[in-house]
């Protein structure tokens, strides 16, 4: 009796330990490969393991050449947006246990690949910069030192302020893929952050709208909602874009002014 209990005791943790995950990882090293290929890794998992943990484990234990951008590991720096099981997500806040196996890990689609899971981000940064994402008040502060902003107005931009530039949305956006002059969802959400900020004043608001209302701007959006679906920070760029285009159209409708 005692012995069976003992064996049972030793067996259960062993069975629990044996839990593994299989990852199909996109690999491409420019010096070695003409074309990308998929490599399969099997790893032991632990409770609470994220995809980033899994990739780091593969890198540390199996294949040090596996390359992925990552830094803060708390969904703040936005370095590690990847295409995991058919969706753009942050590797660091995606649990391995919640994914169907084998887990398919690819770099962000529609971005050129520098190496493995690392993509060329320069175009994305240029898109972000194209909407003039900096504060441009058209007047001096009301109080002499600080600008006044109502808590309601601040609340309106709370979600868009949370953007971490991970590029998940821009990667998911098909208009952004076919039109390089279109700033894309992330940049337009950033533009909206300033557009809605009452501290900038009416003049700047109008100028921002004029800058964006064209067929390569807010009117490019097809309301596919891909950006909204993939955003790890629950921002809805579609909502931001639609609000700006509504305002733009409304202003156009008042043609007699």
């Amino acid at each position: 009796m005692a012995t069976t209990q003992e064996t049972q005791k030793t067996e259960t943790p062993a069975a629990a330990e044996a839990e593994t995950a299989t990852l199909d990882v996109f690999r491409y090293i420019p010096e070695e490969d003409d074309k990308p290929h998929t490599e399969t890794y099997e790893i032991e998992t632990f409770e609470g393991m994220t995809v980033l943990d899994a990739l780091i484990k593969i890198r540390d234990e199996q294949d040090p050449s596996l390359t992925v951008r990552h830094s803060c590991r708390m969904a703040r720096c936005g370095s590690d947006a990847l295409y995991i099981n058919g969706t753009q997500r942050l590797a660091c806040n995606t649990q391995v246990s919640e994914l169907k196996q084998p887990i398919d890990v690819e770099p962000l689609p529609r971005f050129d690949v520098i190496r493995d899971l690392v993509v060329e981000m320069s175009e994305f940064y240029n898109r972000m910069e194209s909407v003039e994402p900096w504060f441009q008040p058209d007047h001096e502060p009301e109080t002499g030192d600080e600008y006044l902003q109502s808590p309601e107005n601040r609340k309106n931009i709370d979600t868009v302020l949370d953007c971490i530039w991970c590029a998940a949305c821009t990667s998911s956006c098909s208009p952004a893929a076919s039109d390089s002059d279109f700033p894309g969802p992330a940049a337009l959400a950033k533009a909206y952050r300033f557009y809605k900020d009452e501290r900038e004043g009416e003049e700047t608001r109008r100028r921002r709208l004029e800058m964006l209302e064209n067929s390569h701007g807010i009117y490019r959006c097809h309301t596919q909602f891909n950006c909204t679906e993939v955003c790890p920070k629950n921002i809805s760029p579609t909502e931001a874009i639609m609000e700006m285009s509504r305002d733009a159209i409304k202003e156009k409708l008042r043609f007699w002014r």
């Binding site: 504060f135 502060p141 600080e146 006044l148 902003q149 601040r154 952050r193 300033f194 501290r199």
Partner: peptide, 19 residues
């Protein structure tokens, strides 16, 4: 801190609109 505000940093606000 006021300089930061003037650069557009989105501080949380009190009811009267100040930081």
């Amino acid at each position: 801190v006021i300089r930061l505000e003037n650069m557009g940093m989105a501080f949380s606000r009190t009811e009267n609109g100040r930081m």
